[in-house]
Nucleic acid binder design. Structure first.
Ligand SMILES: [Zn+2]
Ligand SMILES: [Zn+2]
Ligand SMILES: [Zn+2]
Ligand SMILES: [Zn+2]
Lengths: 140, 140
DNA sequence: AAAAAGTTGAGAATCTTTCTCATAATCGTA
DNA sequence: TACGATTATGAGAAAGATTCTCAACTTTTT
């Protein structure tokens, strides 16, 4: 039950908010645009306005329940905050997103920030390319 | 003379293109939005349409003359490609951008990509925070 | 110089995201 | 359970960023 999460964040427990959380939890892709969520809700018969979805996602982000990612391509992407930081690899062919975490990179970032007198708050690391296995194996 | 660069890219040497390159070369910030360029050109009496600026920047990007960066905040940022890759640190207070390059991070990225069967084409690493020296020293 | 090819500017159009505001739902309390 | 204060929602308008359209104009080639 994450009604607790909402209450803790000072947000009323409403139907749209619960449904949006549900979608984020259930999506196998984990990384969804606001429109993705909108469409998935429609498919389930939930007619929740797109404005509400953006509004709620922004509140969830402020509450630390959700992370907003900026991949190339305009639309922001959202994912449930699962408590552990990670970075992303995005396949430009299929759009597939794979997560990774590398302590060496994380540590270097801290060192670089320190060396520059920079108070590091956050960072975004995205690798772009293609998964070999997703390759268009245009076999006959 | 970078008329050569334009010709090599199969682009005609036009006044707007030269002026846009000039602005990118001269800007001390190095990192400009399309609107920044538009305004700077206006200040110099060059009335070049915003659509042209976006169009030309996209062509320059395809030609490898310019890089497009996606910092938080919607607007894309452009910089002249100076031949050497680097990543960015952005001050959320002042908007100041500082560049850095770290071979350890670059190398780890290659290794991670390889381990995931990922053909790495490009990446984006942005550190967000504040430069201590830019701190609002609200002294009395 | 003329023709061919490519470019420009202005505004319309598109896309993503936010705002407005009247209506509706939630929550603490009586 | 009902009440009232507070907060949230939906629809459409609005805003912000970028791309498209197309007639007029430049650049390059012949
Ligand atoms: Zn990271
Ligand atoms: Zn993720
Ligand atoms: Zn790098
Ligand atoms: Zn740079």
């Amino acid at each position: 039950m994450e009604t607790q999460d909402l209450k803790k964040a000072g947000l009323k427990v409403t139907h749209p908010r619960m449904k949006i959380l549900e979608i984020l939890e259930r999506a196998p892709e984990h990384h969804l645009t606001a429109e993705d969520i909108y469409r998935k809700l429609l498919e389930e018969g939930e007619q929740i306005g797109l404005a509400t979805i953006y509004r709620v996602l922004t509140q969830f982000e402020a509450a630390g329940l959700v992370n907003r990612l900026h991949f190339e391509g305009g639309q922001a992407v959202f994912e449930l905050d699962r408590g552990t930081h990670h970075d992303h690899m995005v396949c430009s062919r299929t759009g597939r997103v794979v997560e990774f975490y590398d302590e060496v990179i994380e540590q270097r970032q801290r060192e670089i920030a320190k060396a520059h007198g920079f108070r590091l708050r956050d960072h975004s690391l995205i690798l772009y390319g293609e998964f070999i296995e997703d390759e268009d194996t245009s076999s006959s």
